[in-house]
Write a protein that binds this DNA or RNA. Sequence first.
RNA 1: GGCCCGUUCGUCUAAUGGUUAGGACACUGGUUUUUCACACCAGCAACAGGGGUUCGAUUCCCCUACGGGCUACCA
Length: 444
Amino acid sequence: MAKVRTRIAPSPSGPLHVGTARAALFSELYSHGQGGKFIIRIEDTDQERSKPEYEQAILEGLKWLGLTWDEGPDIGGDFGPYRQSERTESYTAALTKLLDNGTAYTEAGSEAIKLTVEPQEVTFNDLIRGEVTTHSDTWGGDFVIARSATDPVFHLAVVVDDAAMEISHVIRGEDHLSNTARHILLQRALGLPEPAYAHLPLLMDDQRRKLSKRAGDTDLLSYRDQGYLPEAMVNYLALLGWSPKDDREHLTHDELLKVFSLAGVQKGGAIFSEEKLVAVNKAYLRELSASDLLARARNHLEAAGYTIDDESYWSAALQTEQERVATLAELPAAVEFYKPDWPADYEAPALIWKKSTKEATLDVLGKLVEFLSAVAEDSYTAEALEQTLMQWIADNQRDRGETLWPMRYALTGREHSPGPFEVAAVLGRKLTVERLTAAHAKLK
RNA sequence: GGCCCGUUCGUCUAAUGGUUAGGACACUGGUUUUUCACACCAGCAACAGGGGUUCGAUUCCCCUACGGGCUACCA
């Protein structure tokens, strides 16, 4: 069996589109899943729109996803260079060949070169859709393959490069489906081999339109910035238009490598909806170890003005929110009250539980300060606190809510927060007592 | 308009010539509970429509409708 070589060929005329990222993922899974090679080729024949910073952003995005490539503009390879702007000689040679054998001609009154196309039907076997037939009249027969003798157009460059780079399978979006017939004609005219084609269903927005910038975020890296985990994005993207045919939904990149196949690819377009992405992200978020969580959240926290000097403190703080947030980006706001200098700017009456009174709350707060001040430092853990405090509540025949609500509120200033024992354990005895004391004074 | 591709719960999807058409997310209700969340349990919800073929079609064929893509000297 011939070696499998797939590629992603982004145009550096904008950030990495999520659709491109998905095509890259599918291409990478397909080749690496069977010991093949995955290549990145930058299609920058449009010099007006192509920008080096976009190339950087695209590679950064693919890297963020955890994809690896065997050849590309950044690492080179045996079939380089991997930027079309650096491969003009091969296009010129192809053009010369076509011009010489009479299958192409220079259009009268311009520099543009067109391929001569006899009216005909072109059929190819799409690996996802089966046989697809197009008639050359569809696009008007002859078509432009270069703006000038040294300035090829996408169609020519793609065909020449796919052959030169020995691409065996072209896995790309359905928006290219109607270009394929032209590419095949070009391959025939140049005497080049025909790679296998697989056209992926398009990603759509919630209006069922092709996912576009104005409808939402199409920039893959914006999802990184919004605090999504790359593993979650990979898992989610893989499930958009593909399934393993069983009920598994949680699939890591390694697992995908084992089970991915084009047979599982859907034909219809899929809506990219953040709803499920959030759910997937939550699932991956909760699998993170404490140190990993801190490492991943660090940028978000620092960008929000946090100084992470005490790593074990913040790591513990983050853990209490780990199962509560949807993205890393929510963490800075979520752990605000863990700041040692947290201002406690809540309204005092909020300390009173719905079924309690001001008097009872003041009493509880006072007793809590006494009790907690007496707890040994080494017993100041969430588990131990829960045990001793619950016992204390029982012994004093108090109501749980009447005790725990003011405690949590005094420590966090929130109606919704992690449990009071957890929070207290992270804050430590000193801060806990200080905050309870302050709450007592504030309510009084 | 022309050409091409598509169409299973709201969304992502599974399965099948004969099933109570399965799962996940979302949603709803319940349990638990100091709040929210989590967890657990339960529920709601789909074969676009019409013709065929067939003993029997969601499944195969045709038509229609609807949706999408392409229709550039962008990729």
